[in-house]
């Protein structure tokens, strides 16, 4: 563990908790892409299947459990509890255009052709594009609430910190995982446009509005 990965995980956890709290306390999921949250639940499910078979540390196991529980709780709030506030008309990104190619790629490019490894690879590739429905929704509605912007900033920042973690691990342990690194770079690049708008607008208290 290094400080970059720790801060990255905490930023990820903060994002997940922040979104869950926003939906719960406002009793509304307006402006939130249910599809992205479904994809994140799928990412955690396929990545943490080793939850019961391999124990790394209390931290590792507890974070995985928290991520999975929060992901499903968020999906439940969006599609069940507060589904009346779910914005069908703007959450129209074709998620199958993400899942199918990513599924195929996971079969073709992986470290080991075993079910657990292919599912882990699928979750790595899927996570890199899972935010697209949310970014698409914001570009359609033309704006995002500030809390949603903070959520996206923390979520995008977590994988950016992981990239620094991978650089650190490469130089200190000689460890690197090309699949995780390439997918992590794609994931972070998808946020660049948003990061620019967030830094130049939201910080000064303006509402974030992506070019439609």
């Amino acid at each position: 563990m290094n400080v970059f990965r720790l801060v990255g995980d905490l930023s990820h956890l903060l994002a997940i908790i922040m979104l869950l709290k926003k939906i719960w306390s406002s009793r509304s999921c307006a402006g939130i892409s249910g599809k992205s949250q479904l994809l994140f639940a799928l990412v955690f499910t396929t990545r943490y299947l080793d939850l019961f078979t391999s124990f790394i540390s209390v931290y590792n196991t507890s974070m995985k459990v928290i991520y999975i529980l929060c992901a499903y709780a968020t999906v439940y709030l969006i599609y069940v509890k507060f589904k009346a506030t779910y914005d069908h008309n703007h959450d129209t990104f074709r998620a199958e255009f993400l899942v199918v190619p990513v599924g195929g790629l996971a079969f073709l490019v992986n470290h080991d052709f075993t079910p657990l490894e292919i599912l882990w690879t699928f979750s790595i590739y899927l996570e890199s594009v899972a935010i697209m429905p949310q970014l698409f929704m914001i570009s359609k509605t033309g704006e995002a609430e500030s809390i949603t912007s903070h959520y996206l900033f923390c979520l995008g920042g977590y994988r950016a910190l992981y990239i620094i973690n991978w650089l650190y691990r490469f130089y200190s342990e000689g460890f690197f995982d090309l699949i995780a690194i390439v997918a992590g770079c794609v994931q972070t690049i998808l946020y660049c446009d948003f990061f620019y708008l967030y830094i130049t607008k939201v910080i000064y208290g303006q509402k974030l509005s992506l070019p439609a």
């Binding site: 995980d9 990820h12 391999s54 590792n60 973690n165 342990e173 460890f175 690197f176 995982d177 995780a180």
Partner: peptide, 10 residues
């Protein structure tokens, strides 16, 4: 292998 260590990451 080196990749196995990746699984210690979230």
């Amino acid at each position: 292998g080196a990749e196995d260590q990746a699984k210690d990451e979230l």
